[in-house]
Nucleic acid binder design. Structure first.
Lengths: 125, 125
DNA sequence: CACTCTAGCAACACATGAAGTTACATGAGA
DNA sequence: TCTCATGTAACTTCATGTGTTGCTAGAGTG
């Protein structure tokens, strides 16, 4: 499948697709080939890869929209608040990763197929 | 304390301070007075207010930097991914709120005083 | 009553980072 | 050698949060 085709399916741009897929390729989840007949192919077992793996392959983008204004500060009030916030955010992020680590691509695949079946058996609007 | 003074302490602008404090005032955590001698005064018990209360008084700003591209979609793959993501994010947010709900301003206050004491007893760089 | 000091608020400007776009190089068939 | 694909850098656009300006209104002071 080419970046071009994927981009259309994702309502985005081929270059954006390549940027994202680049991370997945480095981790061996997909393979790419240049030239005529080239494109992207899956190169992993869906039940061996989790959302957490994907998240990390994508360079673990910032998870929270909130956070400390600055790590180093002279202000003791800010320091106290930072400490409390960091502690919570660290723990919560760990839980997030743990949960993502339990969701395999195979599970998403199965969910997709179930939704597909429902759509063809009258479960439609 | 005036917005002007607070702004200097926070390295920001008086108007930004008023915007933030406005949310706290609506919930009765602080009180403001106009005119000569006016400004902000605390109007709550520090041990009765948690970081969660503050977070919500501030209109519960977006917590996560990631999320679904769109809530409604025709794409069954996107739907499956959204479902998995939302489920995790909802749970994780709940945990975040629970943790913040356990941190009172009084606790931060105490932490601040301890750091202050340390600074005056040789625990300094 | 005029003056000063304060919050309240709307409107605008700026900064940051993510997403999208363009342009060109490289490699692989046909 | 021509076309089709990825790889990548540089640039543009867009969204969002933050900062700024200008003005209104209320409250004390002389």
């Amino acid at each position: 499948m080419t970046s071009e085709v994927l981009a259309r399916a994702l309502n985005t741009n081929p270059v954006v697709v390549r940027r994202l897929m680049g991370g997945l390729r480095e981790h061996g989840y997909v393979h790419s080939e240049k030239g005529h007949g080239g494109g992207w192919t899956l190169s992993c077992q869906l039940d061996q890869v989790t959302l957490r793996d994907i998240y990390e392959a994508l360079d673990a983008p910032r998870l929270f929209a909130i956070g400390n204004r600055s790590e180093e500060t002279e202000c003791l009030v800010e320091e106290a608040v930072n400490h409390a916030m960091s502690s919570v955010l660290t723990d919560v992020k760990a839980q997030f990763l743990a949960r993502f680590g339990q969701i395999t691509l195979a599970a998403l695949h199965a969910d997709f197929h179930q939704k597909l079946a429902e759509r063809f058996s009258g479960g439609l609007t």
